[in-house]
């Protein structure tokens, strides 16, 4: 997967990961991929719902020792 931008929001709590993700994706072109790294356990449901509602695609996600990584393709 080609990652165009990485957003590190580790340590930040709701609603910051969402607000920052929205800002970061705004700086990308359509079809580019944003990687979001967060420690917010709520982000799993949040970013999936947000991507769906905002017309982006959540390509993949993984969890490693409390760190969640999401790959969102801009719609």
């Amino acid at each position: 997967m080609n990652i165009d931008k990485t957003l590190d929001v580790k340590g930040l709590a709701c609603p910051m990961p969402l607000v920052q993700t929205k800002k970061a994706i705004g700086e990308l072109e359509a079809n580019q991929v944003l990687e979001v790294v967060t420690t917010d356990a709520g982000a799993k449901a949040d970013l999936a719902a947000w991507s769906k509602s905002s017309g982006h695609e959540l390509l993949d996600q993984k969890e490693d020792d409390g760190v969640f990584t999401f790959y969102i393709q801009k719609g």
């Binding site: 709701c14 969402l18 929205k22 947000w50």
Partner: peptide, 11 residues
């Protein structure tokens, strides 16, 4: 304010 900021992120 959390809901408001979240909603703004939802455009």
């Amino acid at each position: 304010y959390i809901i408001a900021n979240g909603a703004a992120a939802y455009d």
